[in-house]
Design a protein around this nucleic acid. Structure first.
Lengths: 338, 338
DNA sequence: TCGGTGCATGTTATCGATAACATAGTCGAT
DNA sequence: ATCGACTATGTTATCGATAACATGCACCGA
């Protein structure tokens, strides 16, 4: 287990050929006799040789991977985006290097630096808010940069996302159409989750547009808020503003937590209070009642981002046409909880 | 955005020093005058220079990262393991390179190859079953290899895990102690999730040990099975074997799905049928009723793996003492559903 | 004044793979 | 038999950072 890894030189010596021939035997397009190629590959396999991409990357100045930052692994939405992105890039022979920031902008900055040190071909970041230094590094990297899951006012470069605020206008409209006027919002109480904060702002704006009181805001702790925190927040809402007719939760997970708290207290959903979430998580479709939610089409975000990257990499001239913004449609999914 | 990235040479030229001095200015321990270091760092920052670790990795033959494969992102258990692992390794200045296999052994083999090409300092894989070629590559890599979340019969090298089968003995014992004898198992119906398959085998063995019929097995589709698939499987169980007294589900997510199906049909849990899960997911503690589950201590797995890695890397002689197996204790968490 | 000591910096060779160029051998047309 | 075209393989230089060694200069004690 502790011997050092083999190099092409070892393979070449064993095969009695030059290192260059070994190199050629591992690429499909170059000219090596089929017999030699097979022989070399077999020898390499027997020796347990594994190609060293560090060296190849340096020489060719190509790394064939795309860096991606997400706030959290263990989030079905981001997982879907990454999954779709990986699938599409894999078709073009590219890999994804994934890192997560834990909803922490300082950590994100560090991640971005570490990722850029590895010289990705492109980088995809989640969200539209980053530290100044992170923005500068991204602008200077000389590679395509794509911000996702948001529509930043001042984008770094390309964008594939949607307006989180707009989704809340959609949700408030939906509830108002059901004659509800006393509507609350449950979310995290810091801006660590910038998309969540954006949704809260959207909620406030939407309520004001309808001439309704936007003051029923419950902070449920440090984002991302969990089922349990959603339940706790719902408890506080029912205690302090019992005449509330509907509550929008920052995610389906907190919405489900809120739902369990209602069930525990014998509060009927949606008859006594309506509940809405965000994200179209599986649980929204399977809980009793099913939960009204917003589907932000996470896989589509990933696919579109991948396609944009491939286009930019294949046609560098194209890049001079300037930053592109691709807006993704979200959908309101009405269910039993409202 | 499309200029090429700067190199140390650019910084050196601007600063009027040699490349070596720039290199030194970026490492803390070497001797450069403080004035020069500050000046060079400032110039580098202004130029937007980002260190190229590809080159450094090649020259120093150190990459300072650990490769990790998990079956799925978007799984709270694996996320916890990775998170704890990353945290502990970060303290030692090492990063984690994460890849997911989608519960596919062929894909895992490919991932392992791609990861090894980047020359990690160590590699952590989830589970104890891998393709022959993957095993061989891992053995030949010349780096510490750690299998987790399992106790393989024939380990590649080091192991940090627990017996999935044993947890099912624990769960069956728990149900038998509650005088239940007609116990079913809901899980995936292929071996893609090897830990899930291991739990199914453990269930069968445990039932046999108690002299009970181990034949109430419901296959719920391709793993990992979801809430919805758990619900579907529960429907089939209630239709085909209505006298079943308890059901163990391969995960808390499928257990919750099963629970919703019972609620939909007016079947009372645990009075009409008891339900147990696995994984100690948040939902097990918040659903009504709360779900009896197994806590496999995912964070502890990550921490122990990280500590083992650091130990092996810091003291290479230690490695000659041979493969280590670290067994993690799991805990049965009894709740309202049983 | 001179050799010694130590600090700050420069020079050279190197990590492993590969682009670009060079060369040896084969085959067919004339 | 000779030349050109082509195929299979080898040689050299290189990517960007750094270990190892070299050098220049200040400062100190005898």
């Amino acid at each position: 287990m502790q011997q050092t890894a083999k190099t092409m030189k070892d393979v070449a010596r064993t095969a009695g050929v030059s290192v260059m021939t070994v190199s050629r035997a591992f690429k499909s397009d170059t000219s090596v006799s089929e017999a030699t190629r097979i022989r070399i590959r077999k020898i390499a396999d027997d020796l347990g040789y594994v190609f060293d991409s560090t060296a190849a990357n340096l020489r060719t100045q190509k790394t064939n991977f795309v860096a991606v930052t997400i706030p959290s692994i263990n989030n079905a939405n981001f997982a879907d985006t990454v999954d779709a992105l990986s699938d599409r890039l894999a078709e073009a022979g590219m890999q994804v290097l994934l890192a997560y920031s834990g909803y922490d902008m300082a950590k994100e900055e560090e991640l971005i630096e570490q990722l850029l040190r590895r010289r990705p071909e492109a980088i995809v970041v989640t969200g539209g808010r980053h530290s100044e230094r992170a923005r500068k590094m991204l602008k200077n990297a000389g590679i395509p940069v794509i911000e996702t899951w948001d529509l930043p006012k001042d984008p770094i470069c390309h964008v594939v996302g949607f307006s989180n605020a707009a989704t809340m206008h959609g949700m408030v409209d939906h509830l108002v159409a059901k004659t509800m006027t006393r509507i609350a919002f449950i979310g995290g109480d810091t801006d660590g989750d910038t998309r969540g904060a954006e949704r809260r702002r959207g909620f406030i704006a939407a309520m004001q547009r309808h001439g309704l009181d936007p003051g029923r805001l419950i902070g449920a702790g440090r984002p991302p808020i969990s089922m349990r925190e959603g339940a706790g927040a719902m408890g506080r809402l029912l205690d302090t503003m019992p005449d509330t007719q509907a509550v929008i939760c920052v995610s389906d997970l907190s919405a489900f937590g809120a739902l369990t708290e209602c069930q525990r207290r014998g509060v009927s959903v949606p008859d006594d209070i309506a509940i809405a979430g965000f994200g179209a998580y599986e649980i929204a479709g399977i809980s009793h009642p099913t939960i009204t939610t917003i589907d932000p089409q996470p896989r589509l975000i990933g696919t579109r981002a991948a396609e944009l990257i491939l286009q930019l990499l294949n046609d560098p001239d194209d890049a001079t046409r300037g930053p592109r913004t691709i807006e993704i449609d979200w959908q309101l999914r009405s269910a039993q909880s409202t």
